[in-house]
Simulated scan of single mutants.
Amino acid sequence: MMLLRVIVSPQEIRRVTLQELSAEFSRIVTKDLLDSFLDGLDALVPGVLQMYGEAAASGRRVRLSSVLSCLHKEDTNQNKKAAVLLGLPCYLAEDSSDIIRMCDAHGETLDVLMSGMQVGLLIGHEGPLHDAFPLDVFNVALVVEEKIILHDLRDVSTGIAMLLGAIYCLNLEYPRNMKYYFEFLQRVVMNIKPDQCSARIHGLRNKMLRYRM
């Protein structure tokens, strides 16, 4: 398939499947997108959460306290991974509001929620959101050029993996407001050309290694 044709123009954007996106990523990178992402993430979760806890306690990243408090309510593996992925922009002092948006099933319309999204993720939940992130996600959708191209993803981790895969397969630049976030996913989580990471991500990776020792 030619996934690059998905984004030729807004009129020609079409839906893709998880299998199509994964296959195109594998063709380009020779890695399994979802398995590599989840395996890499699983290995990092304990150290990253410890790092978040230290940053929140020091007062350097107060918003991380609300992310970590979600785990006191439901300390599942899925929620731990969601906390890592959704807390990372805060830790890196980046703005995720144009890329990752929460979607109340009974709230604003999809057109409103997708407004201005060049590439991003909608995380669907039921009712008002009282926590830093929804503990019960019913749908995650991938958005390109204000259109949903992939939906019914089962959790935040799968959604972020597909978002990274879409950016990679479409040969898009990382969104400016989250460039270190996606570099971390590529270089550290996926271990794709880790020797080419920026000084900031190199420093973060070394810091994380200390937590894992």
Rank of each mutant, 00 (worst) to 15 (best):
M1T: 08
M2W: 07
L3Y: 05
V6F: 02
V8C: 09
S9H: 12
P10T: 15
Q11F: 14
E12C: 09
R15P: 03
V16D: 08
T17I: 06
L18N: 06
Q19V: 12
L21W: 05
E24I: 02
E24A: 15
F25L: 05
S26F: 06
R27W: 07
R27K: 11
L33F: 04
S36R: 11
G40D: 07
A43P: 03
L44W: 10
V45F: 05
V45Q: 02
V45D: 03
P46L: 01
G47P: 12
V48G: 03
V48M: 06
L49V: 14
L49P: 15
A56Q: 12
A56K: 03
S58F: 00
R60D: 15
V62C: 05
R63W: 10
R63K: 10
L64W: 08
S65Y: 09
S66E: 13
L71T: 13
E74F: 10
D75V: 07
N77L: 14
N77C: 12
N79K: 07
N79H: 15
K81G: 04
A83D: 12
L85T: 07
L86V: 08
G87R: 03
G87P: 07
P89H: 10
P89G: 03
P89N: 04
C90P: 00
C90S: 12
Y91H: 13
Y91N: 02
A93Y: 08
E94S: 05
E94T: 08
S96Y: 00
I100M: 14
M102G: 13
H106A: 13
Q118H: 12
Q118C: 05
G120Y: 06
L121Q: 05
L122Q: 04
I123W: 00
G124C: 15
D131N: 14
F133S: 07
P134M: 08
P134R: 09
P134N: 13
D136H: 10
D136C: 01
F138H: 14
V140Q: 05
L142K: 13
L142I: 05
L142E: 11
V143H: 12
V143R: 06
K147L: 09
H151C: 04
R154I: 09
G165E: 00
G165L: 03
G165F: 01
A166K: 04
A166C: 13
A166T: 15
N171G: 05
L172G: 09
Y174I: 01
N177L: 09
Y180S: 04
E183N: 00
E183I: 00
F184I: 09
F184K: 03
L185I: 00
Q186P: 00
R187A: 04
V188R: 02
V189C: 12
V189L: 01
N191S: 12
N191M: 09
K193I: 06
K193C: 06
P194S: 13
P194G: 15
C197N: 01
R200A: 03
R200Q: 04
I201P: 04
I201C: 01
H202D: 11
G203T: 01
L204H: 03
R205S: 14
R205W: 11
R205K: 15
N206R: 13
R212G: 09
M213C: 11
